[in-house]
Each structure stands twice: as structure tokens, then as C-alpha cells.
Computed example of a mutant assay.
Amino acid sequence: MANRQRIQTPENGPDARAAALTSYPQVALRLGLNPHELMRRFGLDPATLMNREQRIPFSSLCRLLEATAAESSTPSVGIQMAEARTAFDFGVIGLLLAHKRTLREVLLAMVHYRHLLNDALGLYIETVGTQVIVREDNLCEIGVWPRQTMELAVGVLSRTCAAVLGPNWRPVSVHFSHSAPPDLRVHGRIFGCPLVFDSEFNGFICLASDLDQPNPMADPELVRYAEGLAESASAAGRQTVVAEVRNAIYLLLPVEQAAIEHVARHLYVSVRSLQRHLEEEGTTFSNLVDEVRQELAVRYMSNERYPIGRVAALLGYTQQASFTQWFSRRFGMAPRTWRANRQR
């Protein structure tokens, strides 16, 4: 895979706000570990806990939480951190979210200002009949599946929804793509709804009507004030067009919507404008789709729980034969052979 190209945010790849670690010390201490010692092991300065707006490498965050779970034999580290977090703990974005008119507006604002929260996690909202799927996706390769970080992200997102709707927040189900831990008591306490593990996505399903319930804390004046501050911060922090397009493809490919028209709509630009920007940066939309498809192919094929037919569908192929032809050209062997070689 030496020829694989990855367009990331500057220097150290995707990052996140140090606020992601807000509740880490108390959880680590509760589990009998030294939080500062563990943070230093993964290149994280404990002093960043005093500046929650500082950016930290996403890969370091993931590895820290996985090591904490392993060394404490506690697979619920991410969920415990989410439970200990304060609602709307997102800096200036938190002020904006807390006072939006509806949960739908809150989620759309999180999509719009994602680059100010976490460059490596994407949020996608899909309406299916009377229900809505809210999906969070890891958009980068870090060498280890960030189980704890995904549970932290989904837990914080669910708590944000609960803070907006109060007792009216009743998700249909919460989903995780990894397997279930032996003890689900903490998960049951924070989500209070059916849990689905080994799912095809990370996130939750709720009723479409929930998204349009009024937020009792709504305040348009505060929202306008916060939006001004957020846009100022965005001016210096936005990703390149290429990075934004790749992230959108990551989110839309598994739901068969990674056509350029859908991506352009997702990014609020016209197709022609999007093509022009990509040409200026020396690439094309089809090249980016192929790059992302290759990265996702490795991720999904490495997971034996995914049948090859399902991997084909997740990569946007309606026919498994077409996927096999593409995979063989790209990797030099058929999918079954590649998976067999990896198992050996």
C-alpha cells in the first residue's frame, strides 16, 4: 500500500479539541491508573487539559483510550468518559448548539462546524421513512480501530440530543460496528434504549419527528453571536477542498450516495464549482472516489464479519462481480485470495 495517498490536515494529520479529554483524568483515576503518565506515553502534555480549545492529534487520543481500556481491563472507558462530560462542552460551538431552535438545526450545525470539533470524525444524517439514521464515521487510518473513541463520540452526541430534548429524547436504537463488551451496564445507563453491536454503522436511529421538536433553550440572538465567533475561527481552520471532498465521500460511499451531485450538495457548492476547485488542486472527483474506496476496501476486508458481498455494497457496487473486477485490478488478486492471505 506504499502508493496510497492521503490528504490530511496540516502536519500531524487529523486532530481534535483537547476538550475530548475533559473527563479522562477522573475516569483513569477511578480505574486505578495514572492519567498524566499515560498521556505522556502517547505524546500528550497533561497541561493541555487546562486549555480545552488546544488541538491534539486524533491518533494519540485513540491510542490513549485503547491503552487505558486494555490496562484497566475495562472496555467501557469511552462510554464512562461520555457519561462524565458536561452537555454542550464544545467551546463557542457549544453556545451555538445549545440555543438552536430544533435538534435538526443542532445536528446540521455540528456537520457544518465539524472542522472546529474533530477533523477525523464525520457526521451524516439520513432520513428513511419516519426514522432518521445519525451516523458517525472515522475518516482516517490510525492503525487501530478506535473503539473507545467511537463510543465516546456516540455517547457525547446522544447526551447532546438529550440535553436539547430532555425527557422527550427517546432514540429507537444505538449502534456500534464493533462487538459487544461483556458488561453493558454503563451503556444501558447512558443510552436507555436497545443496543445493536456488530452493526454496519456507529450512531443511532431516532424518529424523524424528534428532530423538529422545539428546543426550550432556543435563543436566536445568542446563536447569531456564536455564529459570528465560529465563522471567525473557521476562516483560519478550514480544510482544503480536497480534504473536505474526501471526507464527504467517506460518509456517502457506504450509503450509495457518493456521486458528485450528492457530494456537492453535501458541501453546499455547485457541481461545476466543485470540479473547478479540484482541478485547481491537481485532482479529479473520480480519483478521490477511487482513493477512498481503496482505503475502505482494506478496512472492510480486514474485518472477517463482513461478507464480501456486503463489502461490495458498502463500497458502492450493486454487483459483486463489478467489485471483484475493481478489487483485482487495484490489489492484484481477487477479494477472497486477499482475505485468505491476510488470515495466514
Rank of each mutant, 00 (worst) to 15 (best):
A218N: 07
Q239W: 07
S273R: 09
Q257L: 03
R272N: 11
P220Y: 06
D210G: 00
H277W: 06
G237R: 05
A235T: 11
V196K: 12
I205G: 01
V196N: 03
D210S: 13
D198R: 12
C161Y: 02
A162L: 13
S273E: 14
R276H: 08
V164D: 01
R246G: 10
E227M: 08
F176Y: 15
P220I: 10
E200S: 12
V263S: 00
G228L: 10
A162R: 15
L229M: 13
Y250I: 01
A236K: 05
V242W: 01
E231I: 00
I260N: 02
V269A: 03
N202G: 00
A248H: 04
D183H: 03
R276F: 06
G166Y: 07
S179H: 11
H175R: 12
P216Y: 02
V223C: 10
E244P: 00
Y268E: 10
S273D: 14
Y250C: 12
E227N: 07
S173A: 15
I205T: 13
E221C: 10
G188M: 02
R238G: 04
V186E: 14
V164I: 14
L195A: 09
P182C: 00
V174D: 12
G192K: 04
Q257F: 01
E244Q: 15
V172I: 15
N168K: 15
N215Q: 03
D219K: 01
H187P: 00
V255Q: 11
Q239T: 10
R265Y: 09
